[in-house]
Design a protein around this nucleic acid. Sequence first.
RNA 1: AACGAGGUGGGGUAGUCUGGAUAUCCCGUCGGGCUCAUAACCCGGAGAUCGAUGGUUCAAAUCCAUCUCUCGUUACCA
Length: 764
Amino acid sequence: MSGEYVMICVAWPYANGPLHLGHVAGCYLPPDIQARFERALGNRVLMVSGSDEHGTPITVTAEQNGIKPQEVVDEFHAINSQALLDLGCSWEPNVDSRGIEYGGSLFNRTSDPRHKSMVQDNFLKLLDAGLFETKTMEQYFEIHEGGGGRFLPDRYVEGTCPSCSEDGARGDQCDACGATYEATELKNPVSKMNPSAPIEIRNTDHLFYRLDAFQTVLEQHAESQQGHWKSNVRAMTKQWLDMGLRPRAVTRDLSWGIPLPMEGNEWDGKCVYVWFEAVQGYSTCARIWADEYAGPNGHSNGADAWKNWWCISEDGTKPRHLYFLGKDNIPFHTVIWPALIMGLNHAENGKTIDDPVELPGPGDYSLETNVPAMEYLMLSGGQFSKSRKHAVWLPSFLERFDPDTLRYYLGINMPENHDTDFNWPDFVEKINSELIAAYGNFVHRVLTLGARLPSSNTGPFADFDERERTKDTQKKLETLHTSITESLSRHRYKEALRFAMNAAQVGNQLLQAATPWKYLSEADDGSNPHYGAERIGALTDLSFGWRIARFLAITMQPFLPFSSAKLWSSLGQSGDVSHIPWNSAVDWDVPMTWNDAKPEPLFKRLDLEEILASEQSLADTSDVSEQPGHPVKGGKKKKKKPKEDTEMTEAPEGTTYLNFETFMEVDLRVGEILSVEEHPNADRLFVVSIDDGSEDGRTICAGLKEYYSADEMVGKSVVFVANLKPRALRGVSSEGMMLAADDGEGNVRLVTVDGSISTGSQVR
RNA sequence: AACGAGGUGGGGUAGUCUGGAUAUCCCGUCGGGCUCAUAACCCGGAGAUCGAUGGUUCAAAUCCAUCUCUCGUUACCA
């Protein structure tokens, strides 16, 4: 298997914000572990990814901040690529340190002009092969002064619902009554971003990729992958294929993206749809890498070097393609991207839409070998969320912590089969009682014990290098080595790391049984006639500890590159541990070396209290504790008291006084709760009937289910807002709002009236 | 509510697709040992009717049905 071409494709992070730990666990750490492992095996690895820099959300961020989209993506591309390097992800050097023939890596970006022109070329190839069809759609158009304007995506349009006549309905769905409709049915539509601009429906032509033409061949492909795809990948792909594939739009009315390479006014202002463009980054990035690095560095195939990693060879050998991504991205990589790859093969083989599509053959671009997609990493039981500021950001994490601690924690807790949880108590415990107590401590024992032995030129251990005595331990390590290798080959990272940790345990057991320390502190007092032999035995075991430590340095390297390098040098080994062949870990004939420098612990213990006190800014766990009814396994460790929101603390300074008249516009009245019903169509709502002094009474929908039972509420005299504009909530009209106190920590109590007073009385 | 994913000792987790004998491993806990090592290490124990019920089978954590709870997305939270 040595020398195999392995293409590692990493999902392209969206350059609209910094990466957080969820991203790292889901798609950035696993491919790096894999790449490091494959290199150690001697394979030729090309790893590609980069910033996904186009699309409307980036335009919106730019507009909000009054800057250009390019400035937004420049900023986050810089931040994210640096953060990944700081995490030890091997995006540099770009040329494999074993030599250019072994590949390299490139973290590129979709705003690269070379990417743009390659995407446009591919676009034209598919177009010429008849793999696109044109459809005319009706879409809203925002007219600007001076004649220009722009098309608006549905979610940037709002207006009056055609079904219930409520205002504030969204482009294709009404929040009030739940109706869905064509955006063009919306009444009084306005642009959300620019409400004053006139808006009209215009026809717009778009191109659609004929995904349907690939249905059969994709089913074949999926069938052939059943054996090694993970269950989440199988399920997700099956769902798509079972629904039946339909043509999918590849163009958009979009200002920030790759323009269509087509003549004619009707195509002005249109861009390639992001999904179509960004996935092609996997191949364009390989070609750009070859242009920029393989050619100039003398690769035997020059600028065509990328074909080694992308094309099936004449004898039918396929390069191994591994795609690393989160679960939300699965269909793009098992359905859409393969369909595009096969479409390009089809077009380049001179075929058209009229010819049947076939699976790739010699000379064609290869399809994915495996898609080890991850589930999600949660944060203290809740999902990472940029908008709710519920996240631990990678850059700020790395400012405070050793990257290897994160790599260990996420490695041992990787969301391989289901969602897992990040929380500080668990993080601290795993680092202190596993990484440090087992691995760090074992290594430190060996090194400090060694440092106390008399050292010759060859170090303290070489004289006690007697292989026969440690045969059993060697066997155990060899078994572990096989297990680690197998697990990594099957993308079972948690398991692999666990096996590696077992090696440290074996080491600790060996030391415990050998008790070499006895022969350091106690001199031979003559009472034990076997003292000499026992001493040699114990020190022989101890010296084998050096070999175990070396085994650990090599096998931990894919997971924990920084500490492995440190350990490597502490052992007196020369060179870079990441260049050491994988199997050298169980080569018991390597001459023992030594480093005379005082041994230093590999990791520093973490203190939970200290972290919790200072990490509020990194993870505001209070967000979650405020959401009763959302407990999650493993997510309910004790949390710090919720901190005041920054915005809240600043509020007093920014207080503006309210005019009395303005206050009096709010008509507050007393009402008595007559009955409380379950809302027929909403989980969290009560439908409350109130005697407001009028004959008919009124109905109010209230989200109090979490705080009150229906019985508790009936009969209470409450204060409500009487002149709030009525609004339908999930189909039931709500005529006002009851006042309730909310302490922000999950307690909500209704405002009631002291003593009795007639319903309908005004409150002021 | 719709769709998707799950429920395995105190916490986490493997095994489930492809049924098989005492249900894996890590942490915690209890008892003992060690004292070189970062409150670290080693040995041993306790602790699970594998969410519930029913079914298929010689045999069910595993397959089927129903139920239940949870998580996610969307809805909603006046």
